[in-house]
Design a protein around this nucleic acid. Sequence first.
DNA 1: TCTAATTTGTGCGTATGTATG
DNA 2: GCATACATACGCACAAATTAG
Lengths: 339, 339
Amino acid sequence: MESSLRIQTEGKTPKYLQVIDSVKDAIRQGELKKGDHIFSINNLSDEYLISRNTVQKAYTILRQQGVITSVKGKGFYINRIDITRPYRVLLIFNKISNYKKQIYNAFVSTMGEKATVDLKIHHFDTRLFEQIVSSSLSEYDYLVIMPHFYDDQCWLTKIIKSIPGNQLVILDKDIQDLYSPYRAVYQDFKNDIISALETGLESLKKYKKIILVQPKKIPYPPEIVTGFRFFCMQYKFDHAVIHEVEKNTPVNEKEAFIVIEETDLVRLIQNCNAQKLQIGKQVGIISYNDTPMKEILQGGITVISTDHAIMGETAARLILENRNEKIKNPFRLILRKSL
Amino acid sequence: MESSLRIQTEGKTPKYLQVIDSVKDAIRQGELKKGDHIFSINNLSDEYLISRNTVQKAYTILRQQGVITSVKGKGFYINRIDITRPYRVLLIFNKISNYKKQIYNAFVSTMGEKATVDLKIHHFDTRLFEQIVSSSLSEYDYLVIMPHFYDDQCWLTKIIKSIPGNQLVILDKDIQDLYSPYRAVYQDFKNDIISALETGLESLKKYKKIILVQPKKIPYPPEIVTGFRFFCMQYKFDHAVIHEVEKNTPVNEKEAFIVIEETDLVRLIQNCNAQKLQIGKQVGIISYNDTPMKEILQGGITVISTDHAIMGETAARLILENRNEKIKNPFRLILRKSL
DNA sequence: TCTAATTTGTGCGTATGTATG
DNA sequence: GCATACATACGCACAAATTAG
């Protein structure tokens, strides 16, 4: 047993329980296999400055549970490796939305019985976020977070750095400047939107100007705008970025809109109908994030979207299969009548 | 805990309160962090010449407030550092849906800074639900639950009975057989649907038969069916209850559908379009639960819905104003083009 | 394996001041 | 003035858990 036990005297969990958990964790991580020799009582007692008796107690309990066996004069050996303690996972989201629902559902159902999954929402409150993280590190095996603040990126990175890499799973938006390796399922916002729009180039050529509706209140990744501008320059489209669609927002012929928030989408369609502009012919609409309703709304809304279900599933797999990788999530354009 | 408590025997504030305040002050000052070990009862009792029992009392109260936890044989440890928020509330939902999002958002924003609100989902797993409840009773001041299981109502009631009335807030579906008084914001599913349909009676008369699509997988309140049948008998409508709309589900002229799940609504509209049946003229559609998109989908989907935002807001108010009441949530029909 | 020290948890008894009727 | 109830404060004793020697 080379694995380093993390025994802390100050912690509230009793030392003998910490020893038990350490052995079980090592088994769960695959570091210990059936038949492996583990520390002798004296050895462990000396190394970690725990009383001989305390180690004895832990080993006795482990033996009663059938996890280890003992041979007089030789030592203790791993007996069972079907330790069933489920993973404890905490998802930390900025808010609840339709597609986060999809991520959550896919994550939970992929995890199945193997994890207890909790959910906390920070509402873009950095202080609250910090509090959640610090108080959850000891309660959960993994923190799955979507780092969607953009006001104080610096502080955010600092908080995330306080999470050990092997406990951290990042979703949706990858972060730079993190040293220790961690798990991630990310979107490449800039290149994703560029290649998605390129896929729909033929349909887009009907329009003279492309307008991106990027909400201001809720911070969305700025890379979306970067990618959008890059595409428009590349292919010589007139373009603009607005923050909201209101009742009196002007809509003109030969304009195509890329809309992120659902409320803006609804407003935009209402405005088109009011001005008797035909969607998909005179005005083009592309919406972020697919939902069943967008398949039939106005005969079908064209959508650019990452596959959130797969994102949740992939994140779960990274944990279940103990893979410390970063994976780019698929992104695609679904052409429908509105473009 | 190096921080010096300021305990004065002569002051008028009771000693046990001074102890409580001292600990809380230390937390506010950042001197004590989560997991920190604090003075043992004996230690503090000796140092500050307070009776062991008095310290005991203070610590017991702090534990009840969730500020500290205790481990027999080890000591007391800081558990919460968010002591500025007076309420700790846990919402327990069966799943995440669009309208639960509304409830959650309204609840959180009404509570504002006054509460830390957490969310757990049980996925109709009674065992998981029981586990969540029992482990949360000491951690939270209020458990807000939506009791939407209908398989083993008996077991469910038993679990809910284990929650003290003053700690319990019930949403959406009221429960019988609970003795101690509790808070509730409920729908009267049977009468709500009856009176809502009566409101739309004139429009309904265009149709011969009304079909309720009540999903089977996810248990919805049976009172909906009861109320639906009652209305149809009363006003002499042909009627039927089906559990799903599939691609080949027959749709005929002069039929009106009441649809609960969004996926069924989408399928139904697709079927109507495929069969070239005009929605709102040849086929009527009523959908449960309003969303912005339904305002414009197919020129407007008629909706019967409770106001979920108000439900969340009312629940929050019951807690903030410490009112032990049961309140019926408003329910209404919004007539749009689809009926 | 036994003993001992420390700690929390619980219960009982006592005394004192304060508010209520 | 008296009786009662309640909150505060203290003291003692014992049970059970943790840890050490």
